[in-house]
Amino acid sequence: MKNLIYFIFILLFGCASKQSSKCIENLKFKDEFFKNISIVENLTYGTGDGNLRESLNFLSKYVPVSYGKLLNYKFGYDSETFKWDKTTWLKWYEENKCSNIQFK
């Protein structure tokens, strides 16, 4: 009985480790995705430069962007809307990173 438990444990551990090795993450996409999030974040908090509109357009191809809540007079985010969107974007990436995400 004890040997059976060890066998099941080894079998389950082996299957779990094989499944985790099937993750195919597109590192070029990852770099571009997080670069654009960083641009939006830096512009939202006024600490960087870049093109907010271009970064949001890139992100919107993959994740929802709260365009309706952007501050119209300066085309920027308020910090609460950005935090909400960023959380959504990061969650989406974690859920999809192993599917070899391709550029659109």
Rank of each mutant, 00 (worst) to 15 (best):
I5M: 07
I5P: 07
I5W: 00
Y6L: 15
Y6R: 13
F7E: 05
F7P: 03
I8E: 05
F9R: 10
I10C: 09
L11W: 11
L12T: 15
F13I: 14
G14K: 06
C15G: 14
C15A: 15
S17H: 10
Q19F: 15
S20E: 11
S21G: 01
C23F: 05
E25Q: 13
N26L: 02
N26W: 05
K28Y: 15
K28S: 15
F29P: 11
F29T: 10
E32K: 15
E32H: 13
F33A: 04
K35C: 00
I37N: 04
S38N: 06
V40I: 11
N42T: 04
N42V: 02
L43F: 00
T44I: 03
Y45E: 10
Y45R: 10
T47R: 11
T47C: 00
G48H: 07
D49P: 08
D49N: 12
G50Q: 02
L52K: 09
L52V: 01
R53M: 14
S55A: 14
L56P: 02
N57T: 14
F58Q: 03
L59E: 08
K61V: 11
K61S: 13
P64D: 07
V65T: 04
K69N: 09
L70H: 06
L71C: 03
L71E: 05
N72S: 11
K74V: 13
G76I: 07
S79V: 15
E80Y: 12
W84M: 12
T87M: 00
W89V: 00
K91F: 13
W92F: 09
E95Y: 05
K97Y: 04
